[in-house]
Design a protein around this nucleic acid. Structure first.
Length: 466
RNA sequence: UCCCCGGUAGCUCAAUGGUAGAGCAUGCGGCUGUUAACCGCAGGGUUGAAGGUUCGAAUCCUUCCCGGGGAGCCA
């Protein structure tokens, strides 16, 4: 007897009249004393549940079927037929219902057939995948991840598995988590009293990666078009709806590309994956539009149909200075744009995503390519309404003398960057890349307000249960 | 890390110094091809923790814990 998914049954891939076996978890049970029970069966294959109609003639009707509660696991066999009731096109007329797993203590089962707050669901993260919202998020997350890989694959990019553990101390993108096997209660010391990391596992200090960029540049300068897509770690004490200590990031790196090509790649990628989402996950998006954010579908449709605005930083500062509204923080050329400034640009001034380019060198990283003006670098941020910075990228400095000058300016030791400098000594070419925050992308697509609700088990300061 | 808000039944919330309640969930009963059904009954509480003020504290004060929003940092 073939096993069918709920999605197969509901989406017309099983002919009416066919006998099917379905498996999953009970959402609700409604009894009719006319002699049947309606069981809403959910298996995660799509947003909707499948209605299983269980007649009282079943041998275990009174002993088991009539006692099913939310969360029970069952296997049901029966004919898939057009539904007599409203609310579903087809249903299963069960000839057999087996209870695979009961719910102990049903009055305390944490996932009730009612609305829960997202904050509560985080406290039961091992069960929240059974909720409508988290289930929909999970299917959207998968759809976006697959679309990202498809986008790059179709364009000849190679997926590079850059290391999670890095001994390189030059990534410079934030506070790092230390990786060590040393006994914290009994640390080896050098004669001058410092911790002796030569005794540690790697013979030197090691950390979790904060970015695969520097590593992926090495493969870019051989395979031309590459990207990373994996977990990234920041030990910042950030407590916001946009930050996680462990998050996933997509970082393409393109040889012979300049900043304009880089920005175009970011725009093409985002449009591609949102178009895929609109095509593939209409059921889940309809739910987000109904319960989470009524604008989310319209926003995605508008996103794929329009082009990004491009504004140089210097121009952005002029726009902000001329804005009618007052900002808490004043705008000055040479300073970083505050959240309120970014929101104004993308939400009010333009009303759609904005690419801000050519930032002052003093607020950007050492590897970003110096512009001819000597004051700005070829960097870009993509700002999206409601979420702020979703992409950060740049053209990389490919000229060794200019790179060395920047290292010196920032008091960085060139010895630590020996292999990165080698790339500029042996067949250097212009190249550019960006980082796309995966959770922020999902937040933007779904209207979910918090990155903690779009990753299965969020890690934030003081929180790593599960 | 800083500022603000919150923590009451399994969940969502009432009760603003005077006997801790409702809806949903759960159990039992009724009723109906039902639609997060409906009707009735029942069980369910150390009001986040500790201390303080008061005749009396869910309520006011102090400290701590936890959660959220915003800021900084960033993706």
């Amino acid at each position: 007897m073939p096993i069918h998914s709920v999605a197969d049954c509901l989406q017309g891939r099983v002919p009416a009249g066919e006998t099917v076996t379905v498996r999953g978890w009970v959402r609700t049970r409604r009894d009719s004393k006319a002699g049947l029970s309606f069981v809403q069966l959910h298996d995660g294959s799509c947003f909707a549940p499948l209605q299983v109609v269980a007649p009282k003639e079943l041998p275990n009707y009174a002993s088991e079927v009539a006692k099913l509660t939310a969360g029970c696991a069952i296997e049901a066999e029966g004919r898939l037929v057009p539904s007599e009731g409203k609310g579903q096109t087809v249903e299963v007329q069960a000839s057999r219902v087996n209870v695979v797993g009961w719910v102990d203590d049903p009055d305390h089962y944490p996932m009730q057939p009612k609305r829960h707050t997202l904050e509560y669901l985080r406290e039961v993260a091992h069960l929240r995948s059974r909720s409508n919202t988290i289930g929909a998020v999970t299917r959207v997350r998968h759809g976006l991840a697959m679309a990202i890989h498809r986008f790059f694959h179709e364009r000849g990019f190679f997926w590079i598995h850059t290391p999670i553990v890095t001994a390189s101390d030059c990534e410079g993108a934030g506070e790092m988590f230390r990786v060590s096997t040393l006994d914290l209660a009994n640390l080896p010391r050098t004669p001058d009293g410092k911790v002796d990391f030569t005794k540690d596992f790697f013979g030197r200090e090691a950390f979790l990666t904060v970015s695969g960029q520097l590593a992926v540049e090495t493969y870019c300068l051989a395979l031309s078009k590459v990207y990373t897509f994996g977990p990234t770690f920041r030990a910042e004490n950030s407590n916001t709806s946009r930050h996680l200590a462990e998050f996933w990031m997509i970082e393409p790196e393109i040889a012979f590309a300049d900043l304009a090509a880089d920005a175009q790649a970011a725009e093409d990628l985002l449009k591609y994956i949102f178009k895929a989402l609109l095509n593939e996950r209409g059921d889940d998006l309809a739910f987000f539009a109904e319960r989470i954010d009524k604008d989310c579908i319209a926003r995605l449709e508008k996103f794929v149909a329009s082009s990004f605005e491009r504004i140089p930083y210097t121009e952005a500062v002029r726009i902000l200075k001329g804005a009618k509204r007052k900002f808490e923080y004043p705008v000055e050329w040479g300073g970083d744009l505050q959240s309120e400034h970014e929101r104004y640009l993308t939400e009010e001034h333009v009303g759609r995503p904005v690419v801000v380019t050519d930032y002052p060198k003093q607020i950007k990283a050492f590897y970003m390519r110096m512009n001819d003006d000597g004051k700005t670098v070829a960097a870009m941020d993509v700002l999206a309404p409601g979420i702020g910075e979703i992409v950060g990228g740049s053209q990389r400095e490919e000229r060794l003398d200019v790179l060395d000058a920047r290292l010196q300016e920032l008091n960085l030791d060139p010895k630590h960057y020996w292999w990165y400098r080698d790339l500029r000594r042996y067949g250097t070419v212009p190249h550019a890349g960006f980082g796309l925050g995966f959770e922020r992308t999902i937040v933007y697509a779904t209207g979910m307000g918090n990155v903690r609700d779009v990753i299965p088990f969020p890690r934030t300061p003081g929180s790593a249960e599960f």
